[in-house]
Amino acid sequence: MTPRNWFITGVSSGFGRIMAEQLLARGDRVAGTVRNLSVMDELKAKYRSQLWCAKLDLSETAAIRGVVDRAFAALGHIEMVVSNAGYGLMGAAEEMTDEQVRHQIDTNLVGSIQLIRAALPHLRAQGGGRILQLSSMGGQAAFPGGSLYHATKWGIEGFLDAVAQEVEGFGIGCTLIEPGGARTDFRHRSAQLAPTLDAYDASPSRMVNRIIADDSHPSPGDPAKMVAIMIASIDETPAPRRIALGSDAYHVMYAQLSARLAALEQQRELACSTDFPPEEGDENAPPWFAPNGVRSNAESQ
């Protein structure tokens, strides 16, 4: 297999670290970012020129483009860009401080958006590539106590869904990775809790406090297996738009998506009743808005 070049944010731990280790072990080159360069000393000593590292905190958006530019200059050609860095802010929405809200959005959403925007000119210039964006089952489903985390994951999913359509013609494929719970250090190191308010002690939002505090029920997902599937996905053509990983991810997303679709179907007549009456000749006119020129079911009936 011809070695490939990867750019990965957040390679100090979790999925990012496991991915970097798997790629380096098979002979690929990795440009990885971390907030503390010293945590990469062991891997750097082992893999030397295979591993290029830079300091980057995604919440410091002004620094992102410069790091991406330097990585492409150092490796010459990067086929895969993996937007992995992020964390979870948990607690009831009212409990979070303004600073926590801002930092969560700046890191998970704005930082990921700016990373992808910074990579796109390079990928276009070299004639293509792949973008893997770490989302979560929390990008398609929602639970009490995760409002801000969900806001960032649902936001980045909408962003990349649109970007994928914008850049497909340049040979750039985009994939959203939607893992369920995995046995990384996300729950007990990366996740942050908002200060608690007594008023929410009986709220369903306290579920996340109990999950983070309880070590007796490990997450079901094997992160090494999940990362192996992420890596293998870059050989699929066309790029899969989404990859669900973990039995919990599948069951949770299936249940919530099915409920949303059923609720939408019940509102079909109500939704269509708000249109202006059709005028003569409208049946032959193109829809005012239809991605890829495809009419919706409501428009075609």
Rank of each mutant, 00 (worst) to 15 (best):
M1R: 13
T2D: 15
W6P: 02
F7R: 07
S12A: 15
F15C: 05
Q22A: 11
G27N: 10
D28N: 12
L37Q: 11
E42S: 13
Q50P: 10
A54T: 03
L58S: 00
E60L: 12
T61W: 06
A63Q: 15
A63E: 15
G66V: 02
V67R: 00
E79S: 13
N84D: 12
A85E: 02
A85F: 07
Y87K: 07
G88K: 00
D98Q: 12
V101M: 11
H103F: 09
H103V: 11
Q104K: 01
N108S: 08
V110M: 13
L123I: 07
G128P: 13
I131T: 00
F143M: 11
F143P: 00
P144F: 04
Y149D: 05
H150E: 03
F159M: 07
L160W: 00
Q165S: 09
V167Y: 08
G169P: 08
L176C: 03
E178N: 08
G181N: 02
R183A: 11
R189D: 15
S190H: 10
A191W: 01
Y200G: 10
R206L: 05
V208S: 09
N209Y: 15
R210H: 13
H217T: 13
H217Y: 08
S219P: 00
I234L: 11
R241S: 13
R242D: 06
A244I: 02
H251L: 12
L257D: 13
L257S: 14
A263S: 14
E269F: 10
E269G: 05
T274Y: 12
P277N: 04
P278M: 01
E280A: 13
G281Y: 03
G281H: 05
E283Q: 14
P286H: 03
P286W: 06
P287Q: 02
W288L: 14
W288P: 10
A290P: 03
A290L: 04
N292G: 08
G293N: 05
N297A: 14
N297Q: 12
